[in-house]
Design a binder for these strands. Structure first.
Lengths: 195, 195
DNA sequence: CCTACCGATCGGTAGG
DNA sequence: CCTACCGATCGGTAGG
């Protein structure tokens, strides 16, 4: 069981780096000091590995949704922070979650899609609540959601926790940008001087 | 020369749909009613095909930067519109430009990276100009640029020109959201009633 | 542009 | 977890 976890971690890493199809099972085995065929004592197929990595990432992202509390502004701030935290802590899995899931074939593909949809709906629920309470000033809920998801989802492409930007700085700045886009003035909360 | 163009179009389509490594040359050939080996009368390698598709997409995106005129707000609106227009008109190539370029190996990879960097710098230049003129109220130029690029770059994942949203509607709404994020009030220009 | 082929590598299995 | 192997398929080439 522990060995399987190792395999999943390395698989997530390789899939995120080279892509699912460009990663061979022998390559994966080599990273684990195994022979190619030996992997199949622990797993049943390459595709199962991919789905499992997607599941692990989804669990983290969906966990973010569960931790949201308070008013819509607080929820959105926590959402931004949580999303970026998952990316910082689980970059390979997050990358697979956003990119490589497409290479699953129909039966498994549906599960991956459903997991992604659940996350997107969670984000949409936060924005809807803000709209209904008149806190967010947006005309089109679906479009606003896609905008926020776009801003968040692309971050795994460029954010590196070891880079110049700390997680705190990035979360703060990103939340401000997103809240402004949603029509919330920055200094309604704790203040902040800009302009 | 015309045949080569056909090959590039179909290759872009297949690479965007299944991914570079999951697309075989025989599959590509079949879509063109050719035998696998016959492709090599027109091209030299699979990787060259990928780079060429990336180049074609880059040409379109860089073309958007050249058409920008007027004040920073106008430039940003044109940029958003242009970016989304390329996606609407060239979805397969745009997808390859954003996704599949990573599978190029070092010598060609550098060219792809340079093309992407040029586009990102063009976007950054617009935001810098707006900052310097005091039109955009943002604290961190690089971060604001990454935010805008994130919002734009992810759109190819979900926007479909045949969907419920016209290009005009999407461009308008997206420009408003982005400008607000950058601290520009929506009704400084032609007006617009929300809230 | 086709036929026929190359060596290499693929995911996965049998049997231990 | 290893050795040895399976059939299938890969990108690419020779020769016409």
């Amino acid at each position: 069981m522990e060995r399987r976890e190792q395999i999943l971690t390395v698989a997530g890493y390789l899939f995120s780096q080279r892509g699912y199809h460009a990663t061979s099972m022998r390559e994966l085995a080599k990273h684990l000091n195994l022979q190619g065929g030996s992997l199949y004592a622990h797993i049943t197929s390459k595709e199962e590995l991919l789905l499992e990595v997607v599941r692990q990432a989804a669990e983290r992202f969906l966990g973010v949704l569960e931790g949201l509390k308070g008013d819509p502004v607080s929820k959105l701030k926590s959402l931004v922070r949580g999303h970026l935290e998952v990316i910082a802590q689980e970059l390979p899995r997050a990358t697979v979650f956003f990119h490589e899931w497409k290479h699953l074939s129909p039966p498994l593909l549906e599960e991956a899609k459903a997991l992604r949809r659940r996350y997107e709906e969670g984000v949409q629920a936060v924005i809807r609540e803000g709209m209904e309470q008149g806190v967010f000033r947006v005309e089109n809920l679906r479009l606003a959601t896609l905008f926020v998801l776009s801003a968040l989802n692309w971050t795994y492409q460029w954010y590196r926790p070891e880079g110049p930007l700390t997680l705190e700085e990035l979360s703060e700045a990103y939340a401000t940008l997103i809240l402004r886009a949603l029509g919330v003035e920055a200094n309604k909360e704790k203040g902040g001087e800009n302009g």
